[in-house]
Amino acid sequence: MHTQMSPFEALQAAVHATGGQSALARVCGRSQPAVWKWVQSAQRLPAEHVLTVEAATGIPRHLLRPDIYPADLGPSPAWKGVDQGTQRVSFNQNSALQERAA
């Protein structure tokens, strides 16, 4: 399904998947006008938002920014997790530090 998508089409799909430009802006911690500018000027998603958008939408990073994440590297760990039905685990740094001190 995702194999022939350009980076711009992937950005448009991310806007649609999140529910609109305002929703994608919230996901990225940006304003809606910033997302509007990305879409209207046919820009690529800024690199600092690729992993967040991938996690929120399931659109693979290599489609959002193939210049940074080539497809030949294979699917991202998050994408593999979706296919395998695994759950994400949060890491509490304080607990890990306390365990090391003991």
Rank of each mutant, 00 (worst) to 15 (best):
M1D: 13
H2F: 15
H2R: 11
T3C: 01
Q4D: 08
M5P: 00
M5Y: 03
S6Q: 06
P7S: 11
P7K: 10
P7W: 05
F8E: 13
A10C: 12
A10E: 11
A10Q: 14
A10Y: 06
A13G: 14
A13R: 15
V15A: 06
V15M: 07
H16Y: 11
H16D: 13
A17S: 13
T18K: 08
G19W: 13
G19N: 12
G20N: 11
Q21F: 07
S22M: 10
S22E: 10
S22Q: 14
A23E: 13
L24P: 05
A25I: 03
R26G: 02
V27Y: 02
V27M: 08
V27N: 10
G29P: 05
R30I: 02
R30C: 01
S31V: 00
Q32N: 03
Q32E: 14
P33L: 00
P33T: 02
P33D: 03
A34N: 01
A34V: 02
A34F: 06
V35M: 01
W36Y: 14
W36M: 10
W36F: 15
W36A: 11
K37M: 13
V39W: 06
Q40I: 04
S41I: 07
A42M: 09
A42N: 11
Q43I: 00
R44F: 00
R44A: 03
L45Q: 02
P46R: 14
P46H: 14
P46I: 04
A47N: 08
E48T: 03
H49P: 03
H49Y: 10
T52L: 02
E54Q: 06
A55R: 02
A55S: 06
A55T: 05
T57R: 04
I59H: 01
I59L: 01
I59W: 00
P60I: 01
R61G: 02
H62F: 15
R65P: 07
P66T: 05
D67T: 13
I68M: 12
Y69N: 03
P70A: 10
P70T: 13
D72F: 12
G74I: 08
G74P: 01
P75F: 01
P77F: 05
K80I: 14
K80R: 13
G81K: 08
V82W: 10
D83F: 09
Q84D: 09
G85Y: 09
G85D: 07
Q87V: 12
Q87W: 10
Q87S: 12
R88Y: 07
R88C: 10
R88E: 10
V89F: 12
S90Q: 14
S90C: 03
S90T: 08
Q93I: 09
N94E: 15
N94M: 13
S95H: 14
S95R: 12
S95T: 11
L97G: 08
L97C: 05
Q98R: 14
Q98F: 06
E99V: 10
E99M: 08
E99S: 09
R100Y: 13
R100C: 06
A102I: 11
A102V: 09
